[in-house]
């Protein structure tokens, strides 16, 4: 299932791709197979990569202009006629700006709309705080009936888009701007509510999602060289969470660290805490954005400055397992 061994995955020579690019290619491919797929965008198709679909299927692509609220409710209307709308824009606009449209027009009636939001998290980089969604997962998780997914590489993105296109209901899919190494090969199978344990070890459970998975994986790999062996879990399915996998691992290690490119309030870390506090109270440390707004800078520079880069993860785990 892994593309190569972990070291090779993380090497500079390995293929890299932004998950938004994988989305753009996959939706254009699926458009061929399923004529009910339509795509909407808010004047960002060249950034969200829906432009690939737009070029191929101009009749089924709707540029809605810079009007996100309208786009979400229009997508809902399209869904009532049997279409499968994929609605894309940046994650800040696809969630914070239109939380009510998503809740009232899409989630309450349970319509088959797929919100594919790109440019999530601090890893957006230079555009700064107004364009870095750090609350999007929290907002989407809190709306009843929405499936929240966060792929960690191009392969997982493709599989998740295929899954969403063929399963009825509202989905929020969180995609990134920056390039990420390809972690999984094509044998990887996405299952809703399932994560993947990539490394195994007794000392702690490290859970990550999306953009942070390749970074957290590298931290786990380097820690194992230092004799600190961890369970490393990639969690694309944030809602529903893979409860079984987290409980099994936490029961063994009794120490859980979560890492995400998102506010520590309301995202993956919160989901893991909610599960464990009810079913298996163990210590959980949440790493991510510590309830602060982002800033301009290079993606890796920001993640380091906000304290959840590879070295910060390693230091935190070392301090906890001593």
């Amino acid at each position: 299932m892994l593309n190569k061994d972990v070291q090779a995955i993380l090497s500079d020579e390995n293929k890299k791709a932004a998950t938004r690019t994988a989305y753009g290619e996959k939706i254009a491919e699926l458009g061929e197979l399923n004529k009910d797929i339509v795509v909407l965008d808010c004047d960002l198709s060249k950034s969200t990569m829906t432009s690939v679909f737009a070029k191929k299927f101009p009749d089924r692509f709707f540029d809605m202009g810079i009007a996100e609220a309208n786009m979400m409710s229009v997508a809902a209307g399209l869904a009532t006629t049997g279409k499968i709308p994929f609605a894309s824009t940046f994650a800040v606009f696809a969630t914070k700006r239109v939380a009510d449209q998503i809740s009232s027009s899409i989630a309450y009636p349970g319509l088959n709309v797929k919100i594919c939001a790109t440019h999530a998290g601090l890893s957006v980089g230079e555009d700064g705080a107004t364009h870095q969604a750090i609350e999007d997962v929290a907002i989407m998780r809190a709306i009843p009936g929405i499936t929240v997914l966060s792929p960690c590489d191009g392969t997982e993105t493709g599989k998740i888009i295929e899954y969403a296109a063929s399963h009825y209901g509202p989905y929020y899919i969180r995609l990134t701007r920056s390039n990420i190494p390809v972690i999984f090969n094509d044998n990887y199978k996405f299952e809703l509510g399932r994560g993947t344990k990539i490394l195994e070890g007794p000392k702690a459970t490290l859970v990550s999602t999306g953009f942070m998975t390749h970074i957290a994986l590298q931290a786990a790999r380097e820690l194992s060289d230092e004799g600190i062996e961890l369970d490393f879990i990639n969690m694309p399915s944030i809602k529903p969470l893979d409860e079984e996998l987290v409980l099994e691992s936490a029961g063994k290690t009794r120490l859980v660290v979560t890492v995400e490119d998102h506010n520590i309030i309301g995202g993956l870390g919160s989901a893991v805490c909610e599960l464990l506090s009810e079913k298996m109270p163990v210590k959980v440390i949440r790493m991510g954005v510590m309830d602060k707004f982002g800033a301009s800078g290079e993606p890796m520079e920001l993640i380091k400055a906000y304290g959840f880069d590879k070295e910060s993860i390693k230091d935190k785990i070392k301090s906890l397992v001593k």
Binding site: S73, G77, T80, T81, S104, P109
Partner: peptide
């Protein structure tokens, strides 16, 4: 009832989406 409504301003957008979908078909 063709659309769940109540939060004002959204029904017209949904109607736009319906009109687009019906025209595609």
């Amino acid at each position: 009832v063709e659309m769940s409504t109540g939060s004002l301003g959204q029904g017209l957008s949904a109607a736009v989406g319906m009109a687009m979908g019906l025209r595609l078909d």
